[in-house]
Design a protein around this nucleic acid. Structure first.
Lengths: 218, 218
DNA sequence: ACCTGAACACCGTTCAAGT
DNA sequence: ACCTGAACACCGTTCAAGT
């Protein structure tokens, strides 16, 4: 604390705001993971006292919402402005999934946090809904369609987050011979990430096509 | 603490073990949610000191693994013993999803926790893999297929966990007219849970069929 | 308006001491 | 072998006091 003192006479510049706090928080998560994001740690990085943060955010939860909105801003939904809806959907889903994989630790937050005071998130949904509606989707079908796609995206990204040895049966192996054979066959086989990607693509296509058929969109 | 004293002379009966601890922990989660599960709270319910728990579990994380394995034991994979693989897969996925919806708060734990010392979880996978392999799935295709289905299951259950007003755009509404229209149309429409169920079914069928085709399984 | 410093009510975990 | 009680190093949050 002593070494942290400003030179005398230099005016204190207010430095704390949503953007700066969000940025610092994201950097902590990137370098040391979500559990490392504590109010103390965040305050330290901003050269400030933990209690100072509460002049700008009402809670740690609110800061988490800022982070999620910031991340959602990285999802590219621009294809909906120009491309046919199938291509746009595929491009958007791929980008969404990439972003989720890059921030896998936060998926459960992304999936469950309320869309409140989240301009980037709202902007993304606006783009997607506009594109779908222009393509002939009735309004009432848009959100369910989006939500179902998000299901698949979150789940698929989870597979990337799961530890590589998530399927190690350990002591139980002798009573589960087929399971063990499957685990070993997978390990000898192709890159799991590659397989994961391919299955994501298969599932996505299957869902998009069957939805289109059911909704009568062409 | 004073009122908690045992009658003098009654021998102390060892009462703590994996099953008892898991049970108590699950009851706390059921009644008051995952955040309510603290070592102190758990010890209280077992009429014991928090530190006593560490004679049976090495950490809270281990207790969480016990809980997850206990929950996985509720997933019904028995159809794989008797039914054709398509029907078995559908029944298993439906049961799996029901269980996840009932324990939505724990989905991220279920999805990411290692399968270690988890007899019920291993038993479930053994059943599924056996059924798929008997139906003609090569071993190396089993786990990717299962993992992709789990993706969809977790994601779909997440939709049930998400707060009803997750799509409330708030102040941003005026700049997102299409999004707002979609939100309103959804609210006026059918029961969201019903729609969610239907989309789960569509996605599941689509994925199962396209996988079968790709793997050459009939 | 914004920040500090002290305090509060918690966490999970460790460990010497008891039986 | 198993439990207690005290202690440790943390959490997020509040609030009077300063500027």
């Amino acid at each position: 604390m002593v070494g942290n003192r400003r030179p005398a006479g230099r005016p204190r510049t207010r430095i704390l705001n949503r953007e700066v706090i969000t940025d610092a928080a994201r950097r902590i998560i990137t370098s040391d993971g979500v559990p490392a994001l504590t109010m103390t740690r965040l305050a330290q990085r901003l050269s400030v006292t933990p209690s100072a943060l509460y002049n700008h955010a009402t809670s740690k939860q609110e800061i988490l919402r800022w982070i999620v909105d910031s991340i959602m801003g990285e999802v590219d939904a621009s294809a909906f402005d120009t491309e046919p809806w199938r291509e746009a959907t595929r491009a958007w889903a791929a980008s969404y999934r990439d972003v989720m994989v890059a921030h896998a630790e936060l998926i459960s937050s992304v999936a469950t946090i309320e869309v409140i005071d989240s301009p980037r998130t709202v902007a993304m949904y606006e783009r997607v809904v506009s594109g779908l509606h222009r393509a002939g989707f009735p309004f009432e079908a848009c959100l369910p369609f989006i939500a179902a796609l998000e299901s698949f995206i979150y789940g698929s990204a989870f597979n990337e987050l799961a530890p590589a040895d998530i399927f190690d049966p350990g002591d139980e192996g002798d009573v589960a011979p087929n399971f063990v054979a499957a685990v070993e066959a997978s390990q000898r086989g192709r890159n799991p990430r590659e397989i994961n990607d391919e299955l994501f693509d298969i599932g996505l296509t299957a869902f998009v096509e069957s939805s289109a058929e059911r909704l009568g969109v062409c």
